[in-house]
Design a binder for these strands. Structure first.
Length: 331
DNA sequence: GCTTTATGGAGAT
DNA sequence: TCTCCCTAAAGCC
């Protein structure tokens, strides 16, 4: 269940192992059979990620738009680049386990650092995470490609690698005009636009609205890529009450939110985890990372004492999603 | 086995 | 604000 960082990681994986390659497309599950037949035989020429959406550009400006939604995931297998930062790319990307860490990152954790791959080298592997296989680095397959498992909406196969898409909320073929229309509706993504203009745009929109900041951060037209975990964590990090109307937040604080997102997102892309306690140091940091239940300031910590002040963390529903916050620190 | 849950969003009301 | 869609895994009986 991805927020923006996962989508950028997936895009990177496609660039590394699929871009420039001719693909055979199919829909093992059958629900994207028509689209797959349109894509099949074409070459992937470009890959774009904006917020939580990814766009794959095939011959003749035919684009595949994929939005993973809450349960979508890509499984990669074959000769998949596994550099130090993409270790988790061998596994299912997007889907995460109950502790809020990327499954594949958990593989890395469990298997021990650097024991899995030679850096940067493609490696024949297949990773399927489940309770039974958890902790294994991966499975070698007997035949390539490995048979699709479960409800695979779309399979993209090259000579050496395969990507299986399951459970997306959106999977459709668009022309470039339509792609641009989708992107035009999205708020700035700090990885796409690190300029001060993006920060200005975010700041201006937030400071114009009476909407609670807890809703604005989740609004993909205001800022791209933030989901429920980052929302809660960022508001805690900035000590902002989630109910505060955007227009009442001092400009510098709003700019601080943008800069924090611009800081957290690349960390998430590199680590594959929604690392929001990066400002801890030394022993505190190691302890936080050692336990997957212990990685967040407030997310999923309702009823537990705030890590800063000891006040019980609250849970409420905002924007039809669970919002976690500290009523003492955030006001 | 069944129910619940999840990092999302669109469309109807 | 409600309802629905997408899928898999964990938790419960």
């Amino acid at each position: 269940m991805p927020e923006g960082h996962s989508v950028h990681r997936i895009a990177r994986q496609f660039r590394s192992n699929f871009q420039g390659q001719r693909v055979t497309a199919s829909s093992p599950q059958g629900r994207f059979a028509e689209g797959a037949s349109v894509l099949s035989g074409r070459t992937l020429v470009d890959v774009k990620a904006v917020g939580k959406q990814m766009f794959l550009d095939f011959d003749d400006e035919l684009w595949l738009r994929v939005h993973l939604g809450m349960y979508g995931a890509w499984d990669f297998a074959g000769e998949i680049t596994a550099d130090a930062t993409i270790a988790s790319a061998n596994g299912r990307m997007g889907q995460t386990n109950q502790h809020g860490t990327d499954l594949a990152a958990a593989i890395l954790d469990d298997a021990g650092e650097n024991s899995l791959h030679s850096i940067g080298a493609p490696r024949n592997t297949r990773v399927r995470m489940s309770e039974q296989t958890k902790g294994l680095a991966g499975e070698e397959w007997d035949t390539f490609p490995p048979p699709p498992v479960g409800a695979v909406r779309l399979r993209l196969l090259t000579k050496h690698a395969v990507a299986d898409l399951r459970g997306p909320t959106a999977c459709e073929i668009l022309d470039s005009t339509a792609v641009n229309a989708v992107i035009a509706k999205l708020g700035p993504d700090p990885l796409l636009d690190p300029s001060s203009a993006a920060e200005d745009r975010f700041t201006a929109v937030v400071r114009k609205k009476a909407t609670p900041i807890g809703l604005l951060l989740m609004d993909q037209s205001v800022v791209s890529g933030i989901g429920n975990v980052y929302r809660a964590e960022m508001l805690f990090r900035s000590r902002i009450d989630p109910h505060t109307p955007g227009k009442l937040i001092p400009e510098e604080l709003v700019r601080g939110l943008w800069r924090d997102w611009a800081r957290l997102l690349p960390i998430g892309v590199e680590t594959g985890q929604m690392m929001t306690m990066d400002d801890l140091e030394g022993e505190d940091y190691r302890r936080a990372m050692a336990s997957r239940d212990d990685r967040h300031w407030v997310y999923k910590r309702e009823g537990l004492p705030c890590r800063v002040c000891g006040t019980h963390i609250l849970l409420e529903v905002m924007g039809a999603r669970k919002l976690y916050w500290c009523p003492n620190c955030q006001r």
